[in-house]
Nucleic acid binder design. Structure first.
Lengths: 146, 146
DNA sequence: CTACATGCAAATGCTTTGCAACCTA
DNA sequence: TAGGTTGCAAAGCATTTGCATGTAG
């Protein structure tokens, strides 16, 4: 835990970083991180969580994910990779696909823009929501309201 | 302008649709559409613009784009295609690249998700912002503050 | 005529920010 | 002990919604 630049390594920052890094395959929202961190530091504020996530992303320790929808998620693995999002519950996992560098080649000369990069996001249903969807279509099992 | 289902074709809806379809290569935010429509219908409200964009997207006449960042944009071309976004000013254009269906094949068997689709967004600089960036790096021309 | 639609304003959801007190290096 | 950091609360921003009135079919 080495302080970098003008930043200090506070207790809050440490616990927030640990929370984001806890499961590198699944990615939480700021609010979920807040709830997780609160179990260790009950007096922490949501503002502090947002501020630290911003700083940790700036330092390159984590990355901020801007996927479809209005809520951002945070990834404890700062290296470039794609994600898959559940269209039903919003769960975001890593997508086990290597970055496709050549994808940008198709655009050269075809656009007036200077191309810098690309973002690829897969959409689907997580196991839990797939199962629910299957049950909803099943003509055999009766559905019970919750 | 045929009314579809339970929906009516009001003056407001017509003008909003026309505004979105006006330039099929560039995509506006709700607020930009509001400003454009206001020149024809000065008493329209922003709420009406949002409501109609939602309905037009539901009808499949336009599509709502959820790209990086917090503001949505609307595309008068409802068919599937990719986009390129200026990282500096937010301008969004069509990306002249055919949809890559096979891209999802790489994920089959490698994820616990049921794959439904993907979203690909290119990032770069629009001509205006490229030019500004070039000027900022030029050792020859003096910069003047605005 | 009767739903659907509108204008207005208030409410929402997520995120950011101002400020005084507090801590880390 | 200086300046980054915190908790708290208020503000910000894009979008949505409740309601009384208006209007398309």
């Amino acid at each position: 835990m080495i302080p970098v630049g003008k930043y200090r390594m506070t207790q809050q920052r440490k616990v927030i970083l640990a929370a984001v890094q806890r499961d590198l395959e699944r990615h939480m929202t700021a609010d979920e991180i807040y709830e997780a961190v609160r179990r260790k530091l009950p007096r922490i504020s949501l503002g502090t969580v947002y501020r630290n996530l911003e700083i940790l992303a700036e330092l390159g320790a984590i990355q901020k994910l801007e996927l479809t929808g209005s809520v951002k998620r945070f990834d404890g693995n700062p290296s470039r990779h794609y994600h898959i999002r559940c269209m039903h519950c919003g769960r975001v996992d890593n997508a086990p696909v290597a970055p496709l560098q050549q994808i940008e080649d198709k655009l050269y000369g075809a656009t007036v823009f200077t191309i810098i990069g690309h973002r690829l996001e897969f959409e689907g249903l997580c196991p839990r929501c797939s199962q629910e969807a299957a049950a909803d279509f099943s003509p055999i099992e009766e559905q019970t309201k919750d």
